[in-house]
Design a protein around this nucleic acid. Structure first.
Length: 907
DNA sequence: GAGCACTGC
């Protein structure tokens, strides 16, 4: 027999072995004939009390009245006692002398409770005047008692009722806890006293019997003699006390959790998508591809994967995937769903985004960015891990979504068991359906408040001033307190408008209500971005002036009015010239509707469009141009080649990119050595595809390994990924910022070595945000570069490009700069330009195009001017500019660009 | 001597 942890086991030793409770029962009966009854009593006083305790805990929710009032008083007793106690013996209720026996307090308490119940049921009016005053006085008396005697804990209705008379569960739980603690303490005290008394008796008896009774065998026998029966009170040792306490706390948590779950269940059921659950699952079972049209607020993003999981799509080690175009969306939706499912993120529900993955073997529902899924295709061509994939927000038509759609169209033939669900807004559902061979469209209504739309009567010549006037019109004419969201195209406009509004407000001070002006755009430092989420003060109106960051990426609460200028800034890529330009273009109808929708999130809203209805109907394009039609596709082509898709010109894209763009991509890949003469992928190409960077940058990284300057090039490449907003240009401290930036300049190596300098100093500072601030650099951007570098480093190491040995450049420090520049040239030879004979402009080598060095470059205005340069990008703003330039030697271009240039070009 | 829509790997 093993050692038992039961109380009796420790106490009663028999036949040299420890007993558990059930054995003990038999033993007891055999010890003494009188034990049978006593034994029962022992049993009752221990186990039953335990049970009682347990049931008390679990009854917290089930039988509240019983629990709260310990209502064991007989009503007749009550009446009799009442006569006796209250009428025959008037009591002194002054606070200092007041002391009542427990029973009387119980009666009082019951009385108050019954009054309260009557009031709860029928209202205060149901009591007669006499009863009312009695009720009041009893209540007061009880209060006084409670105040006087803190050891006695009473639960008054006030302890758990809200002002409206409903039960406040949080309050009640707290009150209950107090009550139980007090009771436990009391029981403990009683037990202690009892034990002391018994112990004294036992001692005396022991003395008496010791002489005659065999000590070892029968030491405890007398204990079971009826006359000396011990009234057992549950012994609560330290650890068990803790356990009990934990248990009570746990129970409280469970109560809260149950509340939470029931509220989750209610919310889930109230979502529009819920009533379509079964029908949706039937359709998914029946068709391989399903287009789900669900407006915002339908709940499809959170519910659909759960429905699929409940229907068994997560079985047999397969996962349910759901892609999102944005990182924050993937993370926040995963958190939400994990909460609903009742697991922590990373367990059953996980997510996967760049630099951050939370998933495990248990993960069955996985949210991810669409770009992440594209990369996943590289390691798992058949996506064997997934049984179903949901492409959410497909109508946004991001580059990655479009690639995925193409890849899935191929995959569906290979895997008939695989299910694909495309979730889109109404506007282009048909297009998705057509693309997937007339896949059925499933409509789920959304839940949004109506938004009233207003157009201008005539076209507005200047939408900026029109927007300002409209803001004041709303502010002064609309009585309700909703906030205003203004959509403009860029930082410049936003700042201008913010200043203008602030000035006008100042002039009108005292005549109008306060206005809180919040500009918002992606490049705004995060701490300033947070301002838009601060609640609007009373009697003020918030005016958020935003780019289209607020169209999809950010949701601001409290917006009731939207002002839409009708334009967007869009990056336009010209495949022929390789030139990018940021242009202000009319936004699409889809965008305009999306913007208007932002007014209807909290209640009915209004949208003021600064253009005519005619323009909306006739001039605005239906949808924005899909990204795939307006970007460089070199990286996409390389990726798809790696996936075995060789005939890209005939690949079934939803919107086919121009042949010109594809051919240009193929040519460059050939020149970079990623493809051979027959257009087949080379080893270099395979390695390049491993990097999540533009192929030109990947090529530079490969070259840097041979040139023993991998670390330096890694830094530069990581920073080139996102250079647009590295420098902070503060208006007030323009000179200081300029000087700070100038301290990093490198005339020899151009902008690339400047970036390297910045990186090295940033690293030296210990990646300090303060250092960034002091040097007018965006911490956010450098921080991201740091993550990128870490990721690229890992890949380099995996490919054996980066040795862990001593710093490569330490061996030959003098030539480091040159080797770095050479490595960059290995990727960028195709983007080179030569100084024109007159010495004031440059001409691109590939297309003989006139271009200029961007004024932000360190090489701008260099004396003497650099003869031969490569550039990172070509941008068309006021003129054709090369941004991020670096001097090169002709022989480098000849070496790396031998498949690109005619020999005579280089002479 | 100019200027930076927004995402994502």
């Amino acid at each position: 027999m093993s050692e038992s942890k039961g109380r009796f086991g420790k106490r009663v030793r028999n036949s040299g072995s420890w007993k558990d409770d059930s054995d003990l029962q038999n033993d007891l009966e055999s010890v003494h004939p009188s034990m049978k009854r006593a034994n029962n009593k022992v049993s009752k006083t221990t186990t039953d009390r335990n049970d009682e305790r347990k049931s008390r805990i679990s009854e917290i929710t089930a039988d509240e009245e019983q629990m709260l009032f310990g209502n064991k008083i007989n009503l007749e007793d009550y009446e009799n006692n009442r006569q006796e106690i209250f009428h025959q013996q008037p009591i002194d209720t002054s606070p200092h002398t007041l002391e009542l026996p427990k029973r009387e307090v119980d009666i009082l308490r019951l009385e108050v409770t019954q009054f309260q119940e009557r009031v709860d049921r029928n209202g205060l009016k149901s009591l007669s005047a006499e009863e009312k005053s009695e009720f009041e006085s009893r209540k007061e008396l009880l209060h006084t008692l409670q105040k006087n005697n803190k050891n006695e804990s009473f639960l008054l209705p006030e302890d758990y009722l809200t002002e409206e008379g409903k039960i406040d569960l949080a309050k009640k739980a707290k009150a209950l806890k107090m009550d139980m603690k007090a009771e436990r303490k009391q029981r403990e005290n009683e037990w202690y006293e009892n034990q002391v008394n018994r112990a004294q008796q036992v001692n005396q008896l022991t003395k008496l019997k010791k002489e005659t009774v065999n000590e070892t065998e029968k030491q405890y026998e007398y204990v079971f003699d009826q006359s000396h029966m011990i009234d057992y009170v549950p012994d609560i040792p330290e650890d068990e006390m803790k356990e009990l306490e934990n248990k009570i706390e746990l129970e409280e948590l469970i109560v809260q959790e149950e509340k939470r779950i029931s509220s989750i269940e209610e919310t889930k059921k109230s979502l529009p998508v819920f009533q379509f659950r079964d029908e949706l699952l039937r359709s998914v079972g029946k068709y391989q591809v399903l287009i789900v049209v669900g407006e915002t607020g339908s709940g499809k993003t959170t519910q659909l994967p759960q429905y699929l999981y409940e229907a068994g799509y997560g079985k047999h080690g397969k996962m349910i995937g759901c892609t999102q175009p944005r990182r924050v969306a993937a993370v926040s939706v995963a958190a939400r769903v994990a909460d609903e499912v009742g697991t922590r993120v990373g367990d059953k529900v996980g997510y996967s985004i760049r630099f951050d993955e939370k998933s495990s073997e248990n993960t069955v529902i996985k949210y991810m960015t669409d770009g992440m899924l594209v990369r996943e295709f590289l390691t798992d061509h058949d996506l064997a891990k997934y049984s179903v994939m949901i492409i959410d927000e497909a109508h946004e038509r991001t580059l990655q979504t479009d690639i995925l759609l193409g890849l899935f169209k191929n995959l569906l033939k290979k895997r008939p068991d695989f299910k694909l669900i495309i979730s889109s807004a109404t506007i282009n559902a048909k297009k998705f359906s057509d693309y997937f061979d007339s896949a059925p469209i499933f409509n789920v209504p959304g839940r949004r408040y109506p938004v009233e739309i207003f157009y201008t009567q005539q076209p507005e010549a200047n939408y900026l001033s029109a927007a300002i006037i409209t803001v004041f019109q709303i502010h002064m004419s609309q009585k309700s307190s909703g906030d205003i969201l203004v959509f403009l195209t860029g930082q410049d406009e936003i700042e201008t408008m913010a200043e203008n509004l602030a000035e006008t407000c100042k002039k009108l001070e005292g005549q109008i209500k306060e206005m809180v002006i919040c500009p918002i755009y992606a490049n705004l430092p995060p701490e300033q971005q947070k301002r838009i989420f601060e609640p609007t003060p009373k009697n003020a109106r918030k005016v958020v002036i935003s780019t289209n960051i607020a169209e999809t990426s950010l949701t601001i609460d409290g917006i009731v009015y939207v002002i839409d200028c009708g334009f967007v800034k869009e990056n336009v890529y010209n495949a022929t010239t390789g030139m990018e330009s940021l242009e202000v273009l009319p936004c699409s109808k889809a965008s305009a509707d999306q913007r208007a929708g932002r007014a209807g999130r909290v209640g009915p809203g209004k949208c003021f469009r600064l253009y005519t209805k005619w323009v909306y109907l006739n001039d605005l394009p239906r949808n924005p141009t899909p990204e795939i039609l307006r970007t460089d596709l070199t990286g996409v082509v390389l990726l798809m080649m790696t996936l075995g898709i060789t005939d890209l010109v005939h690949f079934d894209f939803m919107d086919k990119p121009s042949t010109k763009t594809l051919v240009k991509a193929l040519e460059l890949l050939y020149a970079l050595g990623a493809l051979n003469e027959r257009g087949e992928l080379t080893n270099v190409g395979i390695k390049m595809a491993m990097f999540p960077t533009k192929p030109m940058l990947s090529k530079s990284l490969l070259a840097s390994s041979e040139l023993k300057c991998c670390d330096e090039v890694l830094s530069i490449v990581s920073m080139l990924e996102d250079t647009g907003s590295l420098f902070v240009n503060s208006k007030e401290k323009k000179e200081m910022a300029k000087n700070a930036h100038a301290s990093f300049h490198s005339k020899i190596g151009g902008d690339h070595l400047t970036l390297l300098q910045i990186w090295d100093k940033f690293a030296e500072s210990g990646f300090s945000p303060q250092w960034c601030h002091d040097n007018f650099l965006q911490y956010k951007v450098l921080q991201k570069a740091r993550s990128v570098k870490k990721q690229l480093q890992r890949i380099c190491r995996r490919l054996g490009l980066l040795s862990d040995g001593p710093h490569e450049s330490e061996r030959e420090p003098n030539t480091t700069a040159l080797r770095v520049m050479k490595a960059i040239t290995a990727g960028y030879f195709s983007q080179s330009a030569r100084l024109s004979p007159r010495g004031d402009t440059y001409t691109t080598l590939s297309r003989k195009q006139p271009v200029l060095i961007h004024p932000s470059s360190t090489l701008h205005g260099a004396v003497p001017p650099v003869k031969l340069i490569v550039y990172h990008e070509l941008v068309m703003t006021t003129k054709e500019f090369m941004r991020h330039v670096m001097p090169v030697q002709g022989k480098w271009l000849a070496e790396y660009g031998r498949n690109y240039f005619d020999k005579k070009d280089l002479l």
